[in-house]
Design a protein around this nucleic acid. Structure first.
Lengths: 233, 233
DNA sequence: GACGAAAGCTTGTATATACAGGGGTGCTCC
DNA sequence: GGAGCACCCCTGTATATACAAGCTTTCGTC
């Protein structure tokens, strides 16, 4: 069945934002303008804009218009926050690719139960470290079922972002996630990667991201050193 | 200014659900029925129901109706999940009040920056332990600014739930929260409360809950033993 | 020139109406 | 009695219209 008008407009505007045709701070065409342009009722346009606003793609201001806002609303993407003594300081954050994307079979005893289709497809996996002020504070291993992501390994990540890469190049949108959090002691492998003493307490996070494609999930295993910074979401 | 019709209907239905006039699984009156009862257009009713659905109070089913669903949608309330060997087992969860609610000044060096109004009002604080299968796994210290919560300390929590107490008795709704997560080693005090060895890694969570009252926040400091269970949200 | 009112844009709320399509009930026909 | 169909109630989508209210610009008056 064909998608509803409001869904088509929603998808259209969203993709334009993601690709960058509308940039952060830009004013979207007004509701009446969109209504006239696409020959649909204003209430239908409003419905599409409402969904964009709910997901944080735009911010609507009465009397003014709809403003594009890249900052997705509370999808709980990990971010860091300076702790106690360093509050207010400025950070330089950087991400390093430790192990570039490669197609391979899933690890044995994966941390989430995989469907048979996922199991068969194998996975694309890579490993990144995030550094704040030269300190490695986060180790992230990402796992994507090798489906819907043709040629993923052939190019570097779009803007250095996995989510943007999936959205722009593969039409896969991250909608939400579930996560399991534990506190663990660093083992030698991780201690070496994060340059810390063994037995340092770390936050370990298993994540399963839900996408706009039914039954297509993206997985991450994350280790965080929270001595100097906390994890916020 | 008077709230909009859809907001009034939204608030009315929400409170009826919270109080229990509509129970989980119940069918709400149909949109046309509500429209006729309250003499407002069906589209306006739909708007109210849409908000309830967005927040997970109801689940709408085409051709059937709106079903009340107590389980709030992903507000990220902490829940536990059995880990590896215990997946599938059944748990008996219990909460114990270690230190009952009491009004007192705020602790020195509180983990979130307080406004002057909050500082002046002082706080109501209490401490609870959550046990799973007799094991204490979570220690939660809650702090509420002593405003809008008259006689909070005089009665036990409604249904044992802080959020339900605030909603039903004080008309304060929890809308969202921000949190800071760290991994720490248990000190002696906490080790004793959670009956574990010192130096066990714990997940420490600072939370600030946003409520339906502007500038009114509820705070929690949480310690979790994640040896056997993980934290999900 | 400065200030203020008015005009003209925007989004927000509300209504009435229409039709599509899913769910459930019950009836008819076999 | 059972399968299938018709009907009714429900939510989903879409439209046209109206007015309220916020923001910006323009224009006119002082």
């Amino acid at each position: 069945m064909e998608p509803a008008h409001y869904q088509k407009l929603y998808a259209l505007l969203k993709s334009q934002i993601q690709v960058g045709n509308y940039k952060e701070g830009d004013l979207l065409p007004s509701e009446n303008h969109l209504s006239a342009t696409y020959k649909i009722a204003r209430m239908t346009v409003r419905r599409a804009l409402q969904e964009l606003a709910d997901e944080g793609y735009i911010r609507k201001i009465k009397g003014k218009g709809s403003i594009v806002s890249t900052a997705r609303k509370s999808l709980g993407i990990l971010s860091f926050k300076g702790f106690s003594e360093v509050v207010g300081a400025e950070y330089e954050a950087r991400t390093e690719m430790l192990r570039p994307p490669r197609a391979q079979p899933w690890p044995e005893r994966f941390f989430y139960q995989l469907t048979e289709a996922e199991q068969r497809a194998g996975c694309v996996t890579f490993e990144r470290v995030r550094l704040v002020d030269q300190d490695p504070v986060l180790l992230e291993c990402s796992y994507l079922p090798n489906l819907h992501i043709k040629d993923f390994c052939k190019n570097p990540l779009f803007n250095g972002s996995l989510f943007k890469t999936l959205a722009v190049r593969h039409c896969v949108d991250i909608l939400s996630f579930e996560q399991d959090i534990r506190a663990v002691l660093a083992d030698e492998t991780i201690a070496e990667r994060l340059k810390l003493k063994a037995m340092t307490p770390l936050v370990q996070i298993y994540r399963r991201y839900h996408t706009s494609i039914p039954d297509y999930f993206v997985y991450s295993l994350i280790y965080c050193n929270t001595e100097k910074y906390t994890i916020s979401n």
